[in-house]
Computed example of a mutant assay.
Amino acid sequence: MTQHLDQQTVVSQGLKKVWNVSEFAKRYRLDQREENRLLKLLGPFASEHELLMNATRTPNFR
């Protein structure tokens, strides 16, 4: 099924940014364990919002 998209609608709503989960993990300095968890949960690609809501980082105490 195809759907016609009006250009004005797309511009006003904006597009969702889709990330490669491995690139996201490198950028946000997530460890390998967390990267693997996100890959199992979301697959190889996910929206920025999904990744930010599901990612957890271990705190680095001094």
Rank of each mutant, 00 (worst) to 15 (best):
R37M: 07
A55L: 07
Y28S: 04
Y28K: 06
V11F: 03
L42E: 05
A46S: 09
T56L: 13
K40E: 11
F24N: 01
T58N: 11
R57N: 11
T9N: 01
L15N: 03
L39N: 01
S12E: 10
L38Q: 03
K16P: 02
H4V: 09
Q8P: 00
N60D: 13
E35M: 14
P59A: 15
R33T: 09
E35Y: 06
L5K: 03
H49F: 15
K17N: 01
P44S: 07
A25E: 02
N20F: 09
Q32C: 06
P44V: 02
Y28V: 06
T58M: 15
T58K: 14
L5G: 01
S47E: 12
Y28C: 05
E34H: 06
Q3A: 13
F45G: 00
H49S: 12
G14A: 00
H49K: 12
M1V: 12
L41K: 08
P59L: 15
L41P: 00
Q13C: 05
Q7V: 01
K16A: 06
Q7G: 00
T56V: 14
V21S: 03
L42R: 02
D6F: 06
R27M: 14
K16N: 03
N54Q: 14
A55V: 06
T2K: 09
L38W: 04
L5H: 11
T56F: 14
T9H: 04
N54C: 13
D6N: 09
N36A: 12
F61M: 09
L38N: 03
F45V: 08
T56R: 14
M53A: 13
Q13Y: 06
K16S: 06
D31N: 13
D31P: 07
E48F: 10
E48C: 04
V10F: 03
W19A: 01
E50Q: 14
T2N: 09
F24C: 01
L30V: 07
G43W: 11
K16Y: 02
N36M: 11
H4L: 14
E35Q: 15
L42Q: 04
L30S: 04
Q3V: 15
K16M: 02
R37W: 08
F45L: 08
V18N: 00
E23P: 01
